[in-house]
Design a protein around this nucleic acid. Sequence first.
RNA 1: GACCCCUUCGUCUAGAGGCCUAGGACAUUACCCUUUCACGGUAGUAACACGGGUUCGAAUCCCGUAGGGGUCGCCA
Length: 472
Amino acid sequence: MPAAPNVVTRFPPSPTGFLHIGGARTALFNYLYARHHGGTFLLRIEDTDRERSTQPAIEAIIEGMKWLELNWDNNDKIYLQSEHMPRHAAVANEMLANGHAYKCFCTPQELEEMRNHQKANGLPMRYDGRWRDKDPKDAPAGAPFVVRLKAPLTGETTIKDHVRGIVTVQNSQLDDMVLLRSDGTPTYMLSVVVDDNDMGVNTVIRGDDHFTNTFRQVQILKAMNWNIPEYAHIPLIHGSDGQKMSKRHGALGVDEYRKMGYLPEAIRNYLLRLGWSHGDDEIIPDAKAVEWFNLEHIVSSPAKFDYMKLDSVNAHYMREMDDTKLAQTVAARLSEATGTAPDVAQTAILAKGMAGLKQRAKTLKDLTESAAFYVTPRPLPMNDGAKKILSADAKAMLAALRTLLSDLADFSATSIEASIKDFAGQHGKKLGDYAQPLRAALSGSNVSPPIFEVASILGKPETLGRMDDVLK
RNA sequence: GACCCCUUCGUCUAGAGGCCUAGGACAUUACCCUUUCACGGUAGUAACACGGGUUCGAAUCCCGUAGGGGUCGCCA
């Protein structure tokens, strides 16, 4: 099935902030495509903007990638774009030498005036090429200059994109972009092209916001006579306002999702389905994702992020998790929230409780909150629902129940239920009449897993103790 | 403004001219199950943006309109 040999993809975030959800999806698609073809997935940090790039951001991105388990190749090594700036500059100079680039001595003010004029007159906003054919000798001595691409004036540039199809733009629409800044550093447009080429990247999967840039990049590629990679521009993820999700537009860092209690496998599955499909399949475990992923079924329109759906996917994976492992996670979260870590015995109780708890929760956060009562030290605080249940009548019934339970030898859930059911019948009551007060006493709430199961897991001494607390 | 792209239930999507009286999932409604809440089960509401073509036949192809988005930096 894998046709293209040696597929090389890459994820190139710029370290100006955390790894956000849109970037995570781009990374996922690149990762899956490489894995599907048995190819290589690389991580490149685009830190050429020295002003805005930060080390903490680099670390946050790496942490995010690791949390999502999107492991990159090349022995875990990261390609730092800034380390290759001399190479980028060398390429620009090569283009200068072979006539594919030229020096432009315009000042920033001059360019801004030009743009203002164009905007005011409803003209297309592009560099007008005023230094394209001028002799550099005409420039004032020692004046700073940038290096611009000498882009073709006529003809057209065509991109074959796996999502967009074949798209053509007239070269007259594209201006002579800057390759090298006046301080000699390369621009993004140059750096990506050079790095992709040097890294052997042959498949570029990235956000659709890069689509129009692609035409310019292809022009550089052609000027250098380099191979043009396969392209797949994936539609953006929109916020609820229908606009591109960005760091200031509702996109959260992946770490926030971890805190909210989402599982990495759930995030992966949800993100995969957001913009890609495999028939009616919704739950797509990693192995299937790698097996099935392709570029053909990437959706062509933008998607909105939906927490409800994420919740349901997360709930699915959470229920599949091993109870012991889940209990450890919950214990860790509990200790983070309360400051005291559950001990081994308590963690064991949590593990027993997981089966009943996890089908009532969507996230690890929910799960942790609903599990807390198992290990909360006595006397348990009662929530409003519990207080309401514990009327004088209810307490009287609870007192009777206490005697019943203390005499019960077999403290299994079925045994407790059978005995209470029998007891209720004898007193002309329903099971629920006793179950609710018991629930309040044992869980401190009006909502809990099956209460006889809870009692059994808590054990007889703790159960009776909690009942005594309420009866005091 | 210029250029490019997008448009199927509220949301994510299936759909590659007849399989579509448009399918699935999430959400939502009702009922069943039931010691609470969930889970689960059953049923339901709900969409091809609009207008023209092409064709025996169009959600699917073409053109236009409308709406939305992206890009136009010495940011990435």
